[in-house]
Design a protein around this nucleic acid. Structure first.
Lengths: 102, 102
DNA sequence: GCCGTAGTACGATCCCTGTCGAACCACCAC
DNA sequence: GTGGTGGTTCGACAGGGATCGTACTACGGC
């Protein structure tokens, strides 16, 4: 629908944008949740305490920063972590973030 | 002078604050510079293109997040990365950030 | 075709923060 | 003491972004 889900290529991912994307509590929660679901999930089900339109905003931020990959599936959208790309570009970063005890 | 340089203890350092602190181009530059000077440096000498008062602001942000340790020395202030603490809490995070080719 | 559900788009609001300039403080050398 | 240099504080300002509500679109089931 509408915007056809632009994702940056691996070599277009900038560390500043990634950090910016991770520097929000809600998005951190999303990333943590995605880390536990390799196959990806529909983020609408997460208990984030935020409206749908706000969630859309956060997912776009994560997607445009290159943190998350989103693929449409029926009436839903499945989001998954771009682990491979992030690990290749910034080895350890994601693990470090996820290692933090909540 | 004035505020006596409060630093969070290791167990008070929060991942959200650290990411927030790293999510600024100027502060990223500072962190990168500090990474190359284990012994610490006076940040006033860095070519950051920002006024002194802005620099003070950024250093406070980094210090209060637990990213940087600052010790007064004469008329200067020496800043250094809290590598040990960050590596202990979020192993890989700092290395991942620094691995990014500018 | 119709409806419900999942998600997006847009506009408005509000707060946070990065920035600066100006005034000030602290230390050191003389 | 005097002055200079390195930093801080304070207030002001502007831009960004997190949030929401409302209106809208798309897909799937009946």
């Amino acid at each position: 629908m509408t915007t056809l889900l632009a994702h940056p290529e691996r070599d277009e991912i900038r560390i500043a944008s990634v950090l910016q994307a991770l520097a929000d509590p809600v998005r951190l929660q999303i990333v943590r949740a995605l880390a536990e679901h390799e196959e990806g999930i529909s983020c609408g089900v997460l208990p984030l305490g935020v409206t749908a339109s706000t969630l859309t905003h956060h997912l776009r931020t994560l997607r445009e920063a290159g943190v998350v990959r989103v693929r449409p599936q029926g009436t839903s959208r499945i989001s998954s972590l771009r682990r491979d790309d992030l690990d290749a570009l910034f080895p350890g970063l994601l693990d470090g973030v996820l290692a933090a005890k909540r």
